[in-house]
Design a protein around this nucleic acid. Structure first.
Lengths: 218, 218
DNA sequence: GAAGATCGTGACCGCATGATGACGTGCCTC
DNA sequence: GAGGCACGTCATCATGCGGTCACGATCTTC
């Protein structure tokens, strides 16, 4: 398993890394937030909240935003209840307080990975009716004809196709794609219109007034 | 969400159950292991390890064996590290030590459910007689024919269908849908009329004079 | 560095939606 | 059975929401 370890205390880091490697994990060590964001895809992140260059919680949120599936365990000296709550709300799966034993950390890693494994439908392509979306290649076909989409259009379609058939609220879309919930102009509407145009929409993207949009699934 | 709470300390149990219900969970309370095994399907188990009739860890393993998807959080006074490790190895997803705050428990529940919610699709359709309401898709069918409802109409139907068969008071509806209890004109009545029209109502929405409305369930 | 793609913004429009008030109707009370 | 109350119905009106278009800024690409 690929583990990203973000820890700036070198003594802790080397001991932890050694222990993880003994358990046959591939360890990618980072000591700063910027190093962490540069790391490739991983299955698990062990994240120290006290980082030299950036707030750990903010980094946690960013990682979660980028990847819904990765397991995140916060490893930190902050033991207050409000810290634990804040950490979990930032998208972490678990919270381990220093000092900790490797046995407990390993048990928590296993518990989290059990859940991840259960939830991990490795979706590489979504199919909805005549529509086929390849998430890795970022390509879209509409009944054999390929459709070329811009970045925003693709992200929008992806957000809708992931939950095809159910209404995705406007603010949810704004959060997912623009990382904001404040919609000044009609940014979202404009991109929906563009998407509809390219899908020569026969009512594929349905609007639900006052709520959001829905990709027709049946 | 359906929560099975296994806890033999009645004071803890009632406080916890109340807090969970406030958060809109359906709570099934059990004080012994045998009661717990008799409970129906649930989404989450909160399990106290100190039970009168059986070892809590053993129960935890059994629940996990029976259902791979259910979320299990151990809630217990045993705070030793070896207890935590044993608990997690027995298949629990998380481990909360008493005394704990509701805020933290809720945060941990959310963290665990983030994982399982995607794997185990949450039940989101209400069925009442010939009526079928898909809460996620925001679509309504009346015996195979789809009915298109406006926002208020849908919210109204949802509020009634959630408690089909029982009377929902007028001010409760006003609170739920309009966030006010002050009814100037006949706003509510008008929307009830509209809903009845679209459901070509054969007495489906019954009015209970002086109280409110009831969706006929039989 | 020019040309084109992409994206955000604001103006404008159309219409579905929902609130309101007048009036009608059934029901209960005395 | 008259009056009052609660609810139903209808027509009307304001507005909020989303669609569309055009323009300018920024980012790519060659």
């Amino acid at each position: 398993m690929r583990v990203l370890m973000v820890e700036d205390d070198l003594r802790v880091a080397s001991a932890l890394a050694a222990a993880l490697r003994r358990r046959n994990h591939v360890v990618i060590a980072a000591t700063t937030a910027s190093e962490a964001t540069a790391a490739g895809p991983v299955d698990l992140v062990l994240l120290d909240l006290n980082l030299p260059d950036r707030d750990g919680l903010e980094l946690c949120r960013q990682i979660r935003r980028r990847n819904e599936d990765v397991a995140i365990i916060l490893v930190t000296a902050r033991s207050e209840e409000r810290d634990r709550v804040a950490g979990l709300r930032a998208g972490a799966d678990d919270y381990v307080v220093k000092p900790f034993s490797m046995a407990e950390l390993q048990a928590r890693i296993e518990a989290v990975m059990r859940r991840t494994a259960r939830a991990a439908r490795v979706e590489t392509t979504l199919e909805v009716g005549d529509l086929r979306v390849d998430l890795n290649a970022r390509r879209v076909w509409l009944s054999d004809r390929e459709v070329s989409l811009t970045r925003k259009e693709f992200e929008l379609l992806m957000a809708l196709a992931r939950q095809a058939g159910t209404v995705v609220p406007r603010d949810r879309l704004l959060m997912d794609i623009w990382q904001t919930t404040w919609n000044s102009g009609h940014t979202l509407d404009v991109h929906v219109a563009a998407l509809r145009g390219k899908l020569d929409d026969a009512g594929l993207v349905e609007t639900v007034r006052g709520v959001g949009y829905r990709l027709r699934s049946g």
